[in-house]
């Protein structure tokens, strides 16, 4: 049984803002399928009651003082920008309905 259909790959690509053209899609889907098939190996492990590990070394997050420091100048901030207007980054028109957040 296939774990990932080309439509799934397309949907995931859209979530990841990648464009898969029709020529790439079959090979990419097949690769993902093969990897997911391999990963199914994990399903044989009984992990009931096992806590997940997000970090290997158990630490608590450090904090810093609330002091403004180390700011870049606006010119430095946009120095690498592919497009800028004034000291702001420039992008094609943003419409509110495009927001996902």
């Amino acid at each position: 049984m296939s774990r990932i259909a080309p439509e799934d790959a397309k949907r995931v690509a859209e979530l990841a803002r990648l464009r898969l053209d029709d020529a790439e899609l079959p090979a990419m889907t097949a690769h993902l399928e093969r990897i997911l098939e391999y990963v199914d190996l994990l399903m044989e492990v009984d992990t009931r009651g096992v806590e997940p590990t997000a970090h290997a070394i158990p630490l608590a997050t450090p904090t810093r003082k609330d002091e403004p420091t180390g700011e870049l100048t606006p010119e430095q901030a946009i120095a690498n920008a592919p497009a800028a207007e004034g000291t702001a980054f420039s992008v094609p028109k943003v419409f509110d309905d495009e927001a996902a957040g």
Partner: peptide, 9 residues
Amino acid sequence: RKAQKIRTL
């Protein structure tokens, strides 16, 4: 999540 649990093991 499964992978994170394997990580614990």
